[in-house]
Nucleic acid binder design. Structure first.
Lengths: 330, 330
DNA sequence: CGCGTTTACGTCGTTCGTAACGATA
DNA sequence: TATCGTTACGAACGACGTAAACGCG
């Protein structure tokens, strides 16, 4: 068993059992991977993949276990490398962030821009994914950092640092009946119109649905998208009333009427999630400091060491996020 | 970085920084280890050991971290190998048990003998150590299993399975004043005589000392040993009154008078401690089933998966440990 | 017929052991 | 002087890439 074999193994798994694709990703040739895989299987004495003809068809049950172990092995090897790179003050590296489209588009840019000026040799890789996949990406080692939002408790499966809190906004095109309301919006008002919101509100446990169901209402969700820009587009097209994150409404969206919904929908918290036992490169700490400036660097280090959540300083609201970091944006 | 390099690295650390000794243990040559170590250091870009002249003098601060990571890497690689060996129904293997002399001498033999008849090709390796070291051995991966006793809570740092409970006995030579007592023994009686007991009772937190100090007494400990046989020998020689585990007094010790001490000293629990996330070979589960027959095999598997202690069935007392397994002894 | 995997083969790099050297106590 | 680590060298192994063959859709 060699580290190369394990690396090839997870590359094949991550490439969807396509050896040729996996070979490209690890900068090696396809026969090389095939051979190493076979050797590993020979040494272990059982098949890691089920073959259908010549192709790989599925991961064996035993293969699942081996894969999981292999991932932690490679993770720890990566940790050793990070440790070394930190000691060496190595400026190059990469930062893979798994997150939602909303965060990537509206919340992360300033912090990433700031990071880029400080560490121009660090290549940032944003991996947009659906909520459920984000933490899986993190745990599988395909991301160094996850940025994800919840309504209540922090996400489990990693070390969660609270970044900021935010509210949802209701947006309607000018001239829409709701836009002309003189009184505060109610859930009944909303339930009377088709809604346009995020894909995640399709899930029955979504906080949007639950807010309605708590008072016996059933929202009519006309359409969902993963992307706030799409939501805004369809709201403009008159498809319905938009429900989206306040970060997603920018200064130039003057044609949309923004209706506060703090009194209707619970606040969300956006979390930075790190793998347990991960050694972070210096620039990752720098990024965290930019993205969540209210967190003391030592608090972050402690959270990583203790591997247990602790009491954090008050989490700022999105609107309160201070100017200095914002002005760094290119 | 290769697995070989990491294996050599921890071998050198475990050999007390003696490369020659480490080379023997990994069945390789000394120049080979030297070279691999240097290559690893070159790749990481810093020294793992501080050199004094040509010899290794200490582990670098960074080296400590790398060592810890390397151990978990090798542990996971071992887990993969165990997984494979289990699937293959491999009968060969080794079982390294870190434990105290008392357990090794009086509690483990029947279970080990039973294991040996079932799995003659498994070589059992007993590693006697002092209490504090035992769990360290386990966590460093130098043992597969720890057997250790506590008075109260289970030991932390691994998954603890309760094996059995036991009491301490007071032993005195025939003719000793205490041996002639007609009434139950008191702590005052004991405090009046020099005691001979285990090394662990030297520690101020030892349950023996605390039992005395709770009533304002200070025992006079004449001598300690790690070894019950030594304690018995010195009790016979008249050095003092012995305080030892009930398992240590056997049928042939007719010349010693045994005085119950349940009412004076708290009961002890002996635990089987496993590493978290360890893949156990089949024969280890078999051994556990022999040594702690009251534990359901599925409970053990669950405890390993959940990694959290749960409620165990009633833990038997040493005297109640059933006959069937005892009769298997060779 | 194209895509993807396996097989075959030649080259290169690396590891490993032996042997000699060097330093340290 | 004995012990332990380093350097040097040669042999053998193993990994890798190229090229061709094989199956499958």
């Amino acid at each position: 068993m060699t580290l190369t074999q394990l690396r090839y193994l997870v590359a094949i798994a991550d490439a969807g059992l396509n050896i040729t694709l996996a070979a490209e990703r690890v900068h090696a040739t396809q026969p090389g991977l095939s051979k190493q895989l076979r050797q590993l299987e020979d040494e272990l004495g059982f098949l890691l993949f089920v073959r259908k003809g010549k192709s790989l068809d599925a991961v064996t049950h035993a293969g699942q276990h081996v894969l999981a172990r292999a991932r932690t092995v490679l993770g720890e090897v990566g940790n050793i490398r990070s440790l070394a790179a930190n000691l060496r003050n190595e400026a190059r590296g990469e930062l893979r962030i798994a997150t939602t489209h909303t965060q990537a588009r509206f919340a992360l840019p300033t912090a990433i821009a700031a990071l880029n000026t400080l560490y121009p040799e660090v290549s940032v890789h944003l991996q947009p994914a659906r909520d459920a996949e984000i933490l899986a990406q993190l745990e599988a080692g395909r991301a160094d950092l996850a940025v994800i939002s919840t309504v209540g408790a922090p996400p489990s499966g990693g070390i969660a640092l609270p970044a900021y809190r935010w509210q949802r906004l209701i947006v309607a095109p000018q001239g829409h009946p709701l836009a002309a309301l003189k009184r505060p919006l109610t859930l009944d008002d909303l339930a009377a119109h088709p809604l346009v919101s995020y894909d995640s509100s399709r899930r029955p446990e979504s906080s949007l649905r639950r807010a309605f169901e708590a008072v016996g209402l059933h929202p009519q969700i006309a359409m969902t998208a993963g992307d706030a820009d799409l939501i805004k587009t369809y709201v403009r097209a008159g498809l319905g009333v938009g429900v989206l994150a306040e970060m997603a409404l920018q200064a130039e969206d003057t044609d949309l009427r923004r209706l506060p919904a703090e009194h209707l929908l619970p606040a969300c918290t956006t979390w930075l999630v790190l793998r347990r036992d991960a050694v972070l490169r210096e620039y990752v700490l720098e990024f965290i400091a930019r993205f969540a400036p209210h967190l003391d660097r030592r608090d972050v280090a402690r959270a990583l060491a203790d591997a247990e959540p602790r009491d954090w300083p008050a989490v700022p609201h999105w609107r309160e996020r201070s100017g200095p970091t914002l002005s760094v944006a290119a």
